[in-house]
Design a protein around this nucleic acid. Structure first.
Lengths: 344, 344
DNA sequence: CTGAAAGCGCTAACAT
DNA sequence: ATGTTAGCGCTTTCAG
């Protein structure tokens, strides 16, 4: 690379054209994939561009091409490690395909209207929503403005909106099966009061599977939300009930960890000796030695990959129908459901 | 809001002007803060815009105004909860001020050139780098192209680059002090081989404070990187050494948790009975009952706030000097350094 | 294969 | 206060 000549303002295609002794069109073509330029012209242009440090102005390009390659990423709860991984994979995947992820953070109770406005102001080419709040408002706006939209782990809203989700039903069923195989015939559920689509599905599937297998559900103990504190709260309710089932099914890992800690340190119960525990998600902490939690893994990379593919397909062909996509899950068996007593 | 009239394409200011019976300038002024429009005209324009569902095209606006209000957010390790919080706070803060965060994910070993290109292609108004990889390349590019840049928790590179960091020196010193106050006079360090700016600083400050206080450092045991697995690795090395100091100082929480788990479950050591442990960061897990870890809190919200303020100031006045900013940290004392035996 | 010219949607002087 | 005009930087017909 040659030495860059510093000028006052950023160089434009005009500057490059002049220096190369060609027209602006020639410059444009040189930087357009699949355009017809003679090797000689291209060479001259490249050299001039290199000298000036020229870069195509994508805003101007977007304006004339009428597509921005900007993708709105609507995200909440980013300090949740699964969310973080998902956003990371989405952003990386999009960048690799020359799309630009535009981050639109939202937390429960936020003004979603502002975010929608922003997406429309910038003419995003598409959007991916993975926030925890019900995205119906965003979905409506996107549909109304023909913005291709993918919902990740959200309820289906119909229309042209694409859904990519983990296989929640399978996840719930697996939770019941692993407990059954560990010899459990009665189980408490630990869940949360805040509504959540995937969690609702896995809980329902878990309950149905229990009915099939002949596992009795002795109660559903809840915390405010599906985090560590929620798990502690659920455990308090569970302990207060005085019930003594074989196992507890926690609707997600964070909740399970709070639940586990509380029954261990407050009630001095042994897991899996006194109570077996299974959960769902497989966050990193579930594998830590203090917890060693049996859970069902959802794969953020696979979900992100599918979401991106689906979105790009929809952008390229707006009329191509895309049925809901479910990403497979996998049982991760650890000590919290070990059949033999832990003093084996 | 009246019913939106669906037309084929997105409405432009021209459409609104026609419907309102005014000029395009009038429309533009209506949507420009502080422009002079008569209430009557504004009213007509607003009504027409409402009917058509008009939104200013920010790309076109950026093109003519020569500033995009786009901010590049260069981020790595997003599944780290602190990183997630930081990105969340940054994005929310930026959006609140009508800037748009543009997500540029990078992981160690990535091609940073591509990201730089992207920022330049989109004429970002500024950038915030909080990746773990040395950002010198990005810093150079930003300086060369006059892009205002803030580095978060990174080494200072000089020039017009702004630094916002947690007060690592104070954090390291506090770690030493809390151990001293707990009666410790000999300590092992658990750290990582991967280079990290803030961790280097806190370790150095910890070491210096130990010298001041008369605490002997018996060794530095390392894992590959500063995560749970790295902590386990450091613990293995520590146990293999056969040394028996009063305490261990872990350079960050994740590492501390792996260290703790390993010495507990493998060597059956009691914390704080056999060994006191202090660390740094105060991630959520540090407060969980299984760990109850004494640590020094860094505040992602405060860091994000300072970074945004500094960046905006620099954008508004490119020549305003901004000295390095250090965000205060706070000791969070928990059970892992309790002076009395845990069987109190 | 190349250049001239029109246009993407908006803002910013400059008149009025 | 409002309209007219000339760009912002790029792509894309359309001739040649």
């Amino acid at each position: 690379m040659s030495k860059i000549v510093k000028t006052g303002r950023t160089p434009t295609s005009e500057d490059v054209a002049r220096l190369a002794g060609v027209s602006r069109s020639a410059v444009s073509r040189t930087f357009t994939d699949g355009a017809s330029v003679s090797p000689k012209t291209r060479e001259k242009v490249m050299r001039a561009a290199d000298v000036l440090g020229y870069r195509v102005n994508f805003l101007a390009r977007s304006l004339s091409q009428q597509r921005t390659r900007l993708i709105g990423l609507v995200v909440s709860d980013m300090d949740h490690s699964l969310r973080g991984s998902l956003v990371d994979r989405l952003a990386r995947g999009l960048v690799a395909l020359d799309y630009r992820p535009f981050l639109l953070p939202t937390n429960p109770g936020d003004d979603v209207g502002h975010l929608i406005d922003m997406m429309l102001h910038y003419n995003v080419s598409g959007a991916i929503v993975t926030s925890d709040t019900p995205p119906s408002q965003i979905a409506d706006a996107c549909v109304a403005h023909d913005v291709p939209l993918v919902l990740v782990n959200k309820a289906e809203v119909g229309g042209k909106v694409i859904n990519v989700s983990m296989d929640s039903r399978k996840a719930g069923r697996m939770g019941a099966e692993v407990l059954y195989d560990a010899g459990c015939r009665s189980v408490a559920i630990a869940s949360q009061r805040r509504a959540s689509h995937t969690i609702g599905l896995r809980k329902k599937a878990f309950t149905a599977a229990c009915a099939d297998l002949g596992i009795e559900i002795v109660g559903d103990f809840q915390g405010a939300i599906q985090d560590y504190a929620g798990g502690v709260e659920a455990a308090e309710a569970f302990l207060a009930s005085g019930l003594a089932p074989d196992a507890a099914y926690c609707v997600n890992d964070y909740l399970a960890l709070g639940f586990l800690d509380h029954i261990r340190y407050t009630a001095h119960m042994d897991v899996p000796g006194d109570l077996k525990v299974a959960a769902c998600d497989d966050i990193a902490e579930a594998g830590w030695q203090s917890y060693d939690l049996t859970t069902v893994r959802q794969d953020p990379s696979a979900i992100a990959g599918a979401a991106i593919t689906a979105l790009i397909n929809r952008i390229d062909d707006p009329d191509l129908p895309v049925p809901p996509i479910f990403i497979d899950v996998a049982l991760v068996e650890r000590n919290s459901t070990r059949a033999a007593p832990s003093s084996l």
